[in-house]
């Protein structure tokens, strides 16, 4: 029996973690894996911290990723990477979008956004950081940064190259955004 793989997508409500994980799980299912995915809806969507958890293998029981067990964490925002660090498996990879969203307490001057998170994390674990928003903007729309990150995630996981990700993008995004998202996926994959 192959070991169950664990992926965490973490970010801020509205960043598109759910679409990225939808494409991911659909591709994994077609590749023959048992897949479970877990997300939380509701109040936290209004700008709060959000997480989507994906697990795949021959047989998956629990739908959630425990502490110290994520093979890859994809952080759509840098402080969210720090918040979820304890969920990364020892030896796992942290894919980080070099991008900040100020939480309300920082905006109000009641707290300071921690400086140097990415450098700090590089001293702790394997980090793959880049500016997904800039890459997506160059491709035509900053909102496609979620798919840039998905491409980088697929590369980091390894062993998923046989899946037809272009077909999954076609099946899950609106026709007028298909080309943009395919480019975004490959840009993230090729980094």
């Amino acid at each position: 029996m192959s070991e169950v793989k664990n992926i965490l997508l973490v970010g801020v409500g509205g960043q598109g973690t759910i679409l990225a994980s939808k494409i991911l799980t659909s591709g994994l299912m077609k590749a023959g894996y048992d897949v479970k995915m877990s997300e939380i809806h509701g109040m936290s969507q209004r700008g709060g911290s959000v997480s989507t958890q994906v697990r795949y293998g021959d047989k998956v029981y629990s739908p959630i990723v425990g502490k110290g067990s994520a093979d890859v964490i994809v952080a759509f925002e840098e402080m969210e990477a720090l918040r979820w660090l304890d969920h990364l498996k020892i030896g796992g990879t942290m894919v980080i979008n070099d991008f900040r969203i100020q939480p309300v307490p920082v905006n109000l001057g009641n707290a300071e956004y921690p400086e140097g998170i990415i450098e700090h994390l590089k001293g702790i674990c394997d980090v793959h950081a880049f500016k997904a928003a800039e890459i997506a903007t160059e491709l035509g729309n900053p909102k496609a940064m979620n798919i840039v990150l998905l491409g980088a995630l697929v590369k980091s996981m390894g062993g998923l190259d046989d899946i037809d990700w272009d077909a999954e993008i076609e099946a899950n995004v609106k026709p007028k955004f298909v080309d943009l998202n395919k480019k975004a996926f490959h840009a993230g994959y090729d980094l």
């Binding site: 110290g68 402080m79 304890d86 020892i90 939480p103 309300v104 300071e112 956004y113 921690p114 700090h120």
Partner: peptide, 12 residues
């Protein structure tokens, strides 16, 4: 688990 002494800010 990996541990860090850097504090995060809550994101309500």
């Amino acid at each position: 688990t990996y541990k860090s002494d850097m504090a995060t800010v809550v994101r309500p």
